[in-house]
């Protein structure tokens, strides 16, 4: 943002006629800008800032969603309870497993896809096709994989049987439910992430690769010494964005976790991710709405810290191209 032009306005603008012209153009700029920015500001206030403040307030109360008016203040009790809540630590652990599998595989696959796209093909059709899973609504994806992974009628089970293996009930197995859910979202988001990487790759000058190949560098060496360092700011941004999204996984788990007749969180709480636990506390448990708000606040603070840490570690604000 350019702030350099600002300081002229104010006190003695009327005293110096000549300067007034420039200054008023400036002010008009702000006045015009405000109208364009206003809708977004209203959205931010109504849908982000006010609910956030309200949720933080709720996190210090004992309150039933059925009767929010009858809330009582409990101080830090919700927070101290959370620290001793085995279900919270279980859901934090489950979520962490999910994020590591999801982001790990997704980032590597997406980067590979992006490099393939930029080095091999410029085809628009390929780029569009890669985006297809991302266009599907999450709930639909959840339901789709509910049947794909079904141990009786699912296609995965049929493939297993064809090769002589016993089918696995991926979504109802304590071992497999988190990897399965993580892979579902890898399938959904890899294309989108790849496209972001691809856009980043376009900013790397082609001549660097030409110079590399003249010097006899292999494709792998160029990838390591040219692509990765120069892609770092994009890499950082995409990692931050997808990590936040991954920690907030809910819909796929709600739709597919536990299998067709299982409830979300099944089996044995092994798919009870943080957002699901927040949802259960808010809407299914008695008088736990404030507790749910406290959980959400903790998650928000945690994600903020993670994000800042990541941006700092990856020096996202500096580019090696400059």
């Amino acid at each position: 943002m350019t702030t350099a032009a600002a300081p002229v306005a104010g006190s003695d603008a009327s005293a110096e006629k000549p300067k007034r012209g420039k200054s008023s153009v400036d002010n008009d700029g702000w006045k015009v800008a405000i109208w364009f920015l206003l809708p977004s500001l209203i959205g931010f206030l109504v849908f982000y800032l006010i609910p956030t403040i309200r949720a933080i307030r709720l996190s210090f109360q004992k309150v039933s969603i059925l009767n929010p008016a009858a809330a009582t203040s409990v101080g830090w009790e919700n927070y101290t309870d959370i620290m001793e809540d085995a279900d919270f630590w279980n859901s934090a652990w489950v979520t962490l497993q999910y994020v590591v599998i999801n982001i790990g595989i997704q980032t590597v696959l997406a980067l590979g896809l992006a490099v393939l796209m930029s080095r091999l093909t410029e085809s628009l059709i390929v780029r569009a096709t890669i985006l297809l899973p991302w266009i599907l609504p999450n709930i639909l994806v959840g339901l789709l994989f509910l049947f794909i992974f079904d141990p009786t009628v699912g296609i995965v089970a049929q493939v297993f049987k064809f090769f002589g293996f016993d089918p696995i009930a991926f979504l109802a197995s304590t071992t497999w439910v988190i990897p399965a859910l993580a892979l579902i979202n890898v399938w959904k988001f890899t294309g989108y992430t790849a496209l972001l990487f691809f856009a980043g790759l376009q900013t790397i000058p082609k001549m660097l690769y030409e110079a590399g190949s003249i010097d006899g560098a292999t494709e792998w060496q160029m990838f390591r010494s040219i692509t990765i360092p120069l892609l770092r700011p994009i890499l950082a941004l995409v990692m931050v964005v997808s990590l936040i999204g991954s920690f907030q996984v809910f819909d796929v788990v709600a739709a597919a976790g536990g299998g067709v007749q299982g409830s979300p969180g099944d089996p044995l709480g092994k798919s009870r991710v943080l957002y699901l636990y927040i949802y259960e506390n808010a809407f299914l448990f008695q008088n736990k709405f404030g507790y749910a708000a406290a959980l959400a606040t903790i998650l928000m603070i945690f994600l903020t810290v993670i994000t800042l840490l990541q941006l700092r570690l990856l020096r996202a604000d500096q580019s090696d191209l400059a």
């Binding site: 943002m1 006045k31 405000i34 500001l41 931010f44 849908f47 907030q248």
Partner: peptide, 27 residues
């Protein structure tokens, strides 16, 4: 004038924030 600038700054911030929100989260 300063008030206008402050408002505009807030709006810009809001845009950035809601853009982040929208991108980071499929909610």
């Amino acid at each position: 004038n300063a008030l206008w600038r402050l408002l505009a700054l807030l709006c810009a911030l809001a845009m950035v924030a809601s853009a982040c929100g929208g991108g980071s989260d499929d909610a």
